[in-house]
Structures are given as structure tokens and as C-alpha cells.
Design a protein around this nucleic acid. Structure first.
Lengths: 146, 146
DNA sequence: CCTATTGTGGATGTCAAGGTCCACTTGTCT
DNA sequence: AGACAAGTGGACCTTGACATCCACAATAGG
């Protein structure tokens, strides 16, 4: 439903948000979030180009969040790396551009619902979640140390 | 967002619903819905196995809808050919099975919203839509003859 | 200036979804 | 029975997402 790449991006962003302002290397992020390091590098490039993340090269370099977690929604992250496309016009492309057929109007509406759902949670909220007993941290694995 | 295969399946189902009870061949369906005939054959097999559609071999054979359009939702069709998977447990798989972490609880919720949205339209509703001016039929292309 | 560290970009590999083909089976009609 | 019209199943091809690897550019520290 949501791409693997987007999943990886979200894990990385959540981790960065939790480590405010101290740069994290690709290797560090990869280990904690359990994402293949080589591929994560690509994903981070995407996040960097979209401006969600700042990259710093050289010794003591790494990535830091470029946007306040309170102003960053789950949707923002997804759209940055792997945009979910609304249905602009019927795939058959014959009928008018302005109005969708009944079928595709509903399909598009479903995507809209999804967008709305993803847009109403900020990264900050994920980290602030009440931590009673289970799954204290968003990253699941981060929770139990290592 | 929704797979190509599901899109094809929906077009075929809508068309069958519109041609109540007279069997339509793969070729016929393919032409009207503009789906590659060879591939449509595969998709129809899937729909047949899921029981949404009845297949009749031999001369004057073809496919007919096996479920009343009023009882068939868009979601039913999507799930039949290309199920959207809810998130059962955190991908990192370390934390408890019963509760998702804040991040994945929200991602799963987004999928749930999508399901809900797709589940609340029946195929019959698509065909019954008020036809004022534009996009009179769900299949867009079907609308203008041919 | 030199070296170690870190991100960047390109080439390449792998695999499942989408798509094509064809031989085979099932059914109808004469 | 024979011929034709359908769906069925398997083999195969193509493409894009996911993933790996490596040479290169930038930066900090000595």
C-alpha cells in the first residue's frame, strides 16, 4: 500500500527527530532502523533533495532534520520520496478533464482519504505518544535498546 | 496506489454489471474497457476463482457476473485480485504482536480509511449515478459509443 | 597538505508485476 | 463425429522498484 522506500524514509525521519540536531551518519541510521545501508543512502538523498533533511559531508557529518517535527507530517515524508498520485483524469482519457467518471471519482476519493489520514499526524506526535507498557517508541526495535 | 490489475478488474466488473446476464467474451470486454486482451484473460481467471464472476466455455460462452451488483462493493473487487494488506505487526517484528507502534498504527489506520472508502460504494451505485452532461457512464470510454 | 570520514552519483544486479503467446481443454452447433 | 468458439494454464519477455557496489567530491582534523 505504502512503498518500502516510504517506510524506510519514515523510520529514518522518526529517528532523526528523536536525535535532535546531532548529525547521524547513514550507517548509524541504517543500524537502528534496520534498513539496508546502501539503499538508505539513496533514500536519504531523496529526503535531502526535498529539503526535509540537511546533509553534512566530511568527518562528524551526517544528516539532521531540516524541518521542526511539529510541522512535519507523515504525509510530507511519504510525498517526498514516493508521492501517492491522485487520479487526475480517467485512465481512458477520453472524457472531459474536469470531472471524473463515477468509478474513478470514488477511487480518487479513496486516495484522498488516505492522504487526509496521513496528513493529520505529525512526527512530533509520534514521539510524544503516551508510553504505557508496550511499544514505547515509534521505531519498535529502537525501543528495546540496540 | 491501487494496482493496474485492480483497475482492470474494476473496469471489467462494471462492464459485466452493465450487460446483465448475457455472457461477454474476453475479447469483447477487452475492447470496450481498453485492457490488453491477453492480460485481461489472466485477470478474469482471478475474478473467476474468487467467485465474483462465472466463466462459461465453448461457443456463446464468456463471463457473467456471479454476484448481484447491489451486493458487490468496489472493495470486494480490489480484494479479489490484489488484496490491500493491513499492517498486522511492526515490520521490525520485535515488539508485541497485539499492538502496533505509534507510526505503524497510523499507517495501518490510513489503509483502514482507504478500505472503508472503497467498501461504501457498490457497483450498482456506480451505474445508477445521475447522468447530467458529462461522464455519463463509469467506464468513461464506453460513454461515447464504441 | 595529507588523511580519514562522510555524502553523492553512476553502473549494475535481482525480483515481482505487468504483459504476450501458444498449446490444450471444454463446450456448442450442424 | 467434426469444426469452430470460447476459457485455462504454462512458458516467456519487459519494466520498474528495491538493493548493492564502487569511484568521486567535500569536509574536518592534524
Amino acid at each position: 500500500m505504502i512503498s518500502q522506500t516510504a517506510e524506510y524514509a519514515l523510520r529514518a525521519i522518526v529517528y532523526l527527530a528523536d536525535q535532535c540536531d546531532t548529525p547521524q551518519t547513514t550507517r548509524q541510521i541504517a543500524e537502528v532502523t534496520r534498513v539496508p545501508a546502501g539503499y538508505l543512502a539513496k533514500v536519504m538523498q531523496g529526503l535531502s533533495r526535498s529539503g526535509l533533511v540537511r546533509a553534512q559531508r566530511g568527518l562528524h557529518g551526517g544528516f539532521t532534520l531540516a524541518v521542526p517535527p511539529k510541522e512535519l507530517t507523515v504525509l510530507n515524508v511519504v510525498q517526498a520520496v514516493d508521492p501517492l498520485r491522485r487520479i487526475e483524469r480517467c485512465p481512458l482519457g477520453i472524457v472531459s478533464h474536469q470531472s471524473l467518471c463515477p468509478l474513478h471519482r470514488r477511487l480518487d476519493n479513496a486516495v484522498a482519504m488516505m492522504e487526509k489520514s496521513l496528513a493529520c499526524s505529525t512526527i512530533a506526535e509520534l514521539l510524544a505518544e503516551p508510553k504505557r507498557g508496550t511499544a514505547p517508541k515509534p521505531l519498535c526495535a529502537i525501543a528495546d535498546g540496540r
